[in-house]
Design a binder for these strands. Structure first.
Lengths: 204, 204, 204, 204
DNA sequence: ACTTTCGGGACATCCCGTTGCT
DNA sequence: AGCAACGGGATGTCCCGAAAGT
């Protein structure tokens, strides 16, 4: 029975529901019906607030990209503090413990979604691209500060780190990989460019 | 009209059909109907030879893993020849120009497939895991030969290289990334451990 | 933002919106949402002023029947002037160039609408019935004036003329049939009863 | 539970089911679900045998056009026998007592159907056009035989008769109009061109 | 009294596993 | 053993009626 009462923050509720589904069961489980059911609302609500199911997905991913961007800012602000490898590891762990790997899964399999997200910036795989940009921005800041080599090829290292993280986390059954695994991977990739390895040693 | 005549190499025909679909349209397009239609055989054939559609996928992926393994052997045999970065770049380009990225896409989104492939070796993302093993095997050989540092952490570098390649190729609309992009990425990752950078310089 | 201010002539605005939709896209496009959107008002307005969507349609068609009736009066007043075939042709062209064919389409496919319109006068197809009455009324006048045979069976000729016009105009892609086609059809039907064929000759 | 047994004459069964629905409840009731339910088969059957629901409708209407054509042949063969008005009345009664009026209703409201049926012959309203051709063919034969005036404008009279019949029968609640009403309408339209009125006089 | 939203039924379509004939 | 069809669940979308809030 209709209530006539506007739902509170419909978009956010649907976004959150989508996130819960993705985290729980992966991109294959995110259907429009599963979504509205998880959100506890009627099917019509979805199409009232979004053009399309793909339209919803597009806006949903875009919304999470904003979150990624906020993580990017936080990471860049951490430049110069702690250790390079530590900062990177923390950021990657946070990033991939989130819904991000599932987003990449969505982008890989949903053709329409990928196409729409491409319309703005046609280069690269949508979500992964922004994640790499986040890393690249941080690396540039550290290079400026002199904590990594002037010759470090940031444009190559950033996607490398993202690709690594993606594969480590791209599954929904595993227990999330421990932070240590991430740290070791990051340390290996960054070995050639980080100036003071001692900074990156784990506190015993 | 039913023939009753056994088809020749049904499994291989279906595998090839699946590969064509994946290369042409990505993992989202690989349905059981698309498969049998592409193979030019009846739907029933699929269930005669395979338990399930997911069963087919499992065997299909397993079959392609054999191909990856053959690539691994070839790569390992190349140890000591050419340059390390060159060998790695060539191998990655070959690997990701193939159906491999689509396989990873399948594994990421098809829950049942991923689960089944996990039953044997529960660690890591199935196809990516084998690809990483291929790289790791080669790196070990080169380390043995002294062309990369004794301290190189192969267990970290290999998945890194695979993750990088995956993101570079995980789309079906883009023109395939050129070999040079791969080479640059590999060079960055390997910078710290390859002994003789001159070996990796591109022939002018 | 709700205004609380009564809209001016809500009913007429909705009627006009319905007419625009019918003329533009045919009866299949007349949904309640399309209607309120075309009228630029909220969905609720419809149910405030009408019992039902079918209730709206009923009143809408009834309203247009008034227009048909006014056409009928004008036509009857033309009795004795011009030529019989000319008068009939003009009237039919005007009638079917209007929203009338779409109304008949509505009546044919919308069961509830047809049923409700039938409740008053159970004989015949609603809108077509009134259109035929319009013709019949005119023919009666002309018979009175002696311009058509005393024996002319008006009750038969009128629906015939309407049916003819309906089929000539019952499509929304065609360019509207030219007036000449209508004239020829009318002339054929009326051939037996019009007294002075010369009156019906086209001005050279 | 699937049977594996091919249904007998699936197409005909679906056609017949569609016809029953149309006769019982009119064009508005002919949905894909109503169809398969009436036919007592699964939804999938429809899409296995027809491209589309509109595809089904197109083939269905086309199939009934064949029936109309057979009626046309029978009518033409009757030329010279009985009376002109009698033959026409019988043919029209048969035609419109059938599913034909509902077909015209379908064609009027289903845009896609109308468009597809138009692709072959773009002139006129599809089903009505063929029905008119049936009448025209008969009238031509009678004119040849001298039973109607040499000057009879067949191209005008035929659609007129169809239009008349359409309106007389275009409803699904009414008791079918009696044959006498049809006869009177036909007699009126044909009055000017039939040579021997006595032939058309009703047997007292 | 108008506006906005929700609720949910229906519709056309897709897809997969099964079944019986050839 | 291959073939061809069926059965039916699920998906995304549309549409109408109803119930608030402003």
């Amino acid at each position: 029975v209709p209530t006539g009462v506007p739902l509170r923050d419909v978009r956010e509720q649907l976004f959150d529901a989508a996130e819960r589904i993705l985290l729980r069961a992966g991109p294959g489980a995110l259907t429009s019906r599963a979504l509205t059911q998880e959100a506890g609302c009627a099917k019509g609500v979805l199409h009232r607030h979004f053009s399309d199911f793909d339209g919803f997905l597009t806006e949903f991913v875009t919304d999470r990209l904003v979150w990624i961007d906020s993580q990017a800012t936080a990471l860049r602000d951490a430049a110069g503090t702690g250790t390079v490898v530590g900062n990177l590891s923390d950021a990657l762990t946070t990033l991939f413990a989130s819904v991000t790997p599932a987003l990449i899964g969505l982008v890989i399999t949903r053709d329409v979604l990928r196409t729409r997200l491409r319309q703005a910036k046609p280069r690269g795989l949508p979500v992964a691209r922004e994640a790499a940009a986040m890393i690249a921005s941080y690396l540039a800041a550290e290079r400026e500060l002199g904590r990594i080599s002037a010759g470090a090829e940031i444009g190559e290292l950033a996607p490398t780190l993202i690709g690594t993280g993606h594969l480590l986390f791209a599954s929904w059954e595993d227990p999330a990989p421990d932070a240590e695994a991430v740290r070791k991977a990051v340390a290996s990739v960054m070995a050639a460019v980080v100036h003071d390895p001692s900074l990156d040693a784990r506190p015993a």
